[in-house]
Design a protein around this nucleic acid. Structure first.
Lengths: 221, 221
DNA sequence: CGGATGCATGACAGTTCTGTGACAAAGACC
DNA sequence: GGTCTTTGTCACAGAACTGTCATGCATCCG
């Protein structure tokens, strides 16, 4: 944050830290630019009216080398200033006094936009030893051979495989696989049993899908 | 632009066209969403108070499938609304009345920031074993011989071929091939059946377009 | 050691899923 | 106007799947 007014700087810093951000503050553009070069921040907040290098120049200077999102926070609400700041390279412009919640929401929106393509896509394949689960393809391969599972079995297996190494309770499984909020937990047992018939070499002594007595089931990593 | 007030819609459209933008306007979220799916715009402007699907829902719906920048233009200046809209996925929020110059500057800032248009350019030909699908040419070749498909069959095949190896649910197919958001899933079955008559050597035991019971259909890679 | 609890499994009846043939409406073409 | 295609809806039959239950074994606890 580059802001020359001590009180505002302190207030904003505290407010943002409250929202979970880590803030580094500077009172002048020179100081701020240096800081950003030394240790780049994820977002830069900048006031327009600064002693020395002013906000507009500061933004241009930032933009020369850096793609960091820049948010202007200014007391001036003149359209001309807003346009100038945006043209200089700012990503957003807020007029003081700013509502912390709004600032925070706008920062999140910017981060969303700036971040490299979201890593939300689940991997194509979950491998557990010689068992390969492909959620998107709707396939399960055991030692390279494709298995025929029913929908329930498949979803159950996906859920367990996705959390390999963790115990999942019958309740959790009912919720995630069946989307039941209540229901008979025996139901899970039955389907685990059916699944074992297909994925275990020896269903009597399960290796891949084990019971954790009193807690639930898990697939060892 | 999605805006239900005729006068505002017209005024904004003219103002933006003056700035050099090409504008497509819709009066309802339904209409706008459909338009965006048909022919994606570079930026979406949306009002919050809309008849039917409201602005928030509309943003969420857009975000489900699309990474397009979304700007909210609303008469409501309540922080709560602003935060909600941004959380829903909007990139910016302007309070009416908006200064055209500011809007224009903010749109440019967003375009600058927007990810380069996804590489959706599809290859000329999708090859799946001895089946070749040419989406652009509108042809399908089976062992070099051209098949005669109806339009629906062709689009269905393209959709499945494009996602070869992935299961597509009947719902997904209805949405992508028929652009239905609801509808009878049996319809998909029937057309899959008809398509099989043409692309399978032995329609009784499908090899190229297989059923994944409980999940949908897919073409194996 | 007896009782209680947790778990596995086989049987079964009801439900759901899928492929298909028939058919009418809508559209394309001449 | 007439003909041929294409589409969407429906009904039906067989196959596959699901949830429930009863039974029996294993494990835990006092």
């Amino acid at each position: 944050m580059i802001e020359d007014d001590d009180r505002i700087r302190l207030a904003l810093t505290l407010a943002l830290e409250d929202e979970g951000y880590t803030v580094r503050a500077a009172a002048t553009a020179e100081e701020g630019l240096l800081g950003q070069r030394r240790e780049p921040a994820d977002i830069v907040l900048v006031d327009l009216m600064l002693p020395g290098i002013d906000g507009f120049q500061c933004i241009r200077e930032l933009r020369r080398t850096d793609d960091v999102p820049v948010v202007v926070i200014s007391a001036r609400d003149d359209t001309h200033d807003i346009v100038a700041a945006l043209e200089a390279g700012a990503d957003d412009y807020l007029v003081k006094p700013v509502a912390t919640k709004e600032l925070s929401a706008r920062l999140r929106a910017l981060q969303r936009r700036a971040r490299p393509p979201a890593q939300t896509a689940q991997p194509d394949e979950l491998a557990l030893g010689d068992l390969a689960v492909r959620p998107l393809a709707g396939e399960v391969l055991l030692r390279g051979e494709q298995l025929t599972l029913t929908r329930t079995e498949f979803r159950l297996l996906c859920e367990l495989a996705e959390h390999a190494g963790q115990v999942l309770s019958r309740q959790q499984l009912l919720q995630r696989v069946w989307e039941y909020d209540f229901g008979d937990e025996r139901l899970v047992d039955v389907h685990v049993g059916r699944l074992r018939q297909k994925i275990e070499d020896n269903p009597g002594t399960p290796q891949r899908l084990v019971t954790v007595r009193g807690l639930g089931y898990k697939m060892p990593r």
